[in-house]
Design a binder for these strands. Structure first.
Lengths: 158, 158
DNA sequence: GGACTAATGTGATATTATAACAGTCGTGTC
DNA sequence: GACACGACTGTTATAATATCACATTAGTCC
């Protein structure tokens, strides 16, 4: 699927499925999943963790898909805007969305050891309640919890 | 109290009180509230909103307290480390803590109109519960809600 | 085909943050 | 008093992240 893949397992097929899913959504919503945008999505899915814009740009460069920062940022903006990826503020980095479609603003669980990022959806509700009570009208939320994932707590190290 | 103050009201006295409070805590904890650190705290209190490191640095420069980025960053690191200020990831900016002492990791309500930042403490609990259930060990949390504060919802504009 | 919008290519630059190392200053020790 | 030590500061340089501006290309509608 890519020049990057070191971990073969069934990762490739799960990426392929995710890409097809996004493809379908784009078609439905009349969005253009152009080569660069598609490739950036694949890179994020393949990386399977939060990646910096310049990490992604490096890969694009090697593949001749773009060499200047705006190329990466524009693709990332597109993916984030339409919910196919998320920006992790704490890391100045990006992850592919693991629940595309569920129109959401999830919480993220970031492992400081293996850098894995998980989405947690239940977390939102209580927060909105709390803010609303104070009269504050929430429009967007950044909820990022850093710590150790279950695997790394056991010394697995992902 | 400072060369910056445009809004006179009783802001000055509330800043003075906050500074004295931090002073006391530093004395107790054997921390050095040096001139630069103290001035950065005052600037944050006076600004009364999230300020970028370079905004602060500009003010320090005019006062001859330091001219290079590390000066501002070191003072901010100190204040954040000891809970006298907080970093707002979403804004790459800093605010003075409004509840120093309560050893906390609060949620922030950020008004996109007037840039005011409020701390909300009730919000935490539900999140920790949620994360814990997934087996993830939370060590630090970034919870930032952007929207409109009650004043700006009324067209006040703070 | 002409007008339009969306996307890309590219060079330059803005913004945020840190590394590295030398100098200063107080404090304790002998 | 000389010294060693630690914490802080001053300064240069540079890294890392992000955006602006403008020219060009590609697709779409009429």
């Amino acid at each position: 699927m890519s020049t990057i893949g070191f971990s073969e397992h069934d990762h490739a097929s799960c990426i392929a499925r995710a890409v097809r899913d996004v493809e379908a959504r784009c078609e439905e919503a009349r969005l253009q999943l152009t080569p660069v945008r598609r490739r950036v999505l694949e890179i994020l899915l393949d990386g399977h963790r939060a990646m910096g814009a310049y990490d992604i740009l490096d890969l694009l460069r090697r593949e001749g898909l773009g060499s200047q920062p705006p190329v990466a940022y524009r693709a990332l903006d597109f993916l984030v805007k339409h919910g196919f990826a998320h920006r992790i503020e704490k890391l100045n980095a990006f992850v592919a969305c693991t629940h595309p479609g569920a129109d959401h603003a999830p919480a993220f669980l970031i492992c400081r050891d293996c850098s894995a990022v998980a989405e947690a959806h239940e977390a939102r509700v209580a927060l909105d309640e709390s803010a609303r009570q104070s009269g504050f009208a929430v429009e967007s939320a950044v909820i990022e919890l850093e710590g150790l994932c279950p695997l790394c707590q056991n010394g697995a190290g992902a």
